[in-house]
Simulated assay, not measured.
Amino acid sequence: MTRIAPCLWYDGTAEDAANFYAATFPNSSVDAVHRAPADYPNGQAGNVLTVEFTVLGMKFLGLNGGPMFKFDEAVSFMVHTKDQEETDRYWNAIVSNGGQELACGWCKDRFGLSWQITPQALLDMMTSTDKAASKRAMEAMMTMHKIDIATLEAAFRGD
C-alpha cells in the first residue's frame, strides 16, 4: 500500500482527467471512482467526488473540489522519456487534446496541470562535466517548446 499520494484538485473533471492520463501513459489506470454520499459545498450526493488513479505507476487522488483552486506551474509532473518518439507521443497527446505548449519542454493539459516532457538525453547533457557543451545545449533548449533531441545533440557537439 502506498502511504502517500498527491491529491489533485479539479473542478468537476477528475474522472475525465484520470481517463485521459490512463489512455495516454503506460502503467496507468483509473482504479476507483467514488461518489459523494451526501451534498457538499460544490456538489450533490451522487456526483463523482474522488477518483483514485495511477499514472506511470504512481498513485494519485483526484478531488472534484470546485472552482476555488487552480493548477499553476508551481507544481508540474516531469516525465522522463527515452527517445524522440516517446517525447513526441506524450507531448502531442497532451497538447493536441486541448492542452497548451509552454517553453523548454513544458506543456499544460486541458485540465490546467503542467507537465515537463523531458528526454533523458537532455538531462544527461545538462549534467555533463563538459560545461561549455552543457551551456550550448541549455541555450538551444531555451529556444524550444517541445524538446528536439537532435537539435540539442548538435548544439552539445558544437555543430
Rank of each mutant, 00 (worst) to 15 (best):
G43D: 00
A74D: 14
D39E: 05
N64L: 01
N42A: 08
F60G: 01
P67T: 11
S76M: 12
A74I: 14
A36R: 12
T50A: 06
N64F: 06
F60N: 00
G62D: 01
G62E: 03
V51P: 01
T50E: 09
S76R: 05
D39M: 09
A74G: 15
F71S: 02
T50G: 15
G57T: 14
R35W: 02
A45Q: 12
L49N: 10
F71A: 03
F60D: 01
G66P: 00
P67D: 05
F77I: 13
N64M: 09
N64E: 04
F71H: 09
Y40V: 11
L61F: 04
K70F: 10
G65P: 00
K70Y: 09
L63H: 08
T54E: 09
D72T: 09
V75W: 15
P67W: 05
A45P: 01
L63P: 00
N47D: 14
F77Y: 15
K70R: 15
L56M: 13
G65W: 02
P67Q: 04
G43P: 01
G66Y: 07
L49Q: 12
K70P: 03
Q44T: 11
P67S: 11
G62R: 01
M68Y: 13
F53S: 04
L49V: 07
E73D: 15
A32L: 14
A74Q: 13
T50K: 12
L56Q: 10
N64V: 03
E52D: 11
V48K: 03
L49S: 13
F77H: 05
K59W: 04
G57W: 09
H34E: 13
G46C: 07
A36V: 05
K59G: 02
M68E: 15
A32Q: 13
A36F: 06
L63K: 06
F77K: 06
V33P: 03
L61K: 02
E52F: 08
V48G: 03
F60W: 08
P41E: 08
N42Y: 07
H34R: 07
G65Q: 04
G43F: 00
F71K: 12
G66L: 03
V55H: 14
T54D: 14
E73C: 05
G43L: 00
L56F: 12
N47R: 05
R35I: 00
E52N: 14
N64Q: 05
Y40Q: 02
N64S: 09
V48Q: 02
D39K: 04
A45Y: 10
K70L: 11
E73F: 05
L63N: 02
A45E: 11
E73L: 00
V55N: 02
L61I: 04
V48I: 14
N42E: 10
G66S: 00
N47E: 06
F53T: 00
P37I: 03
N47T: 07
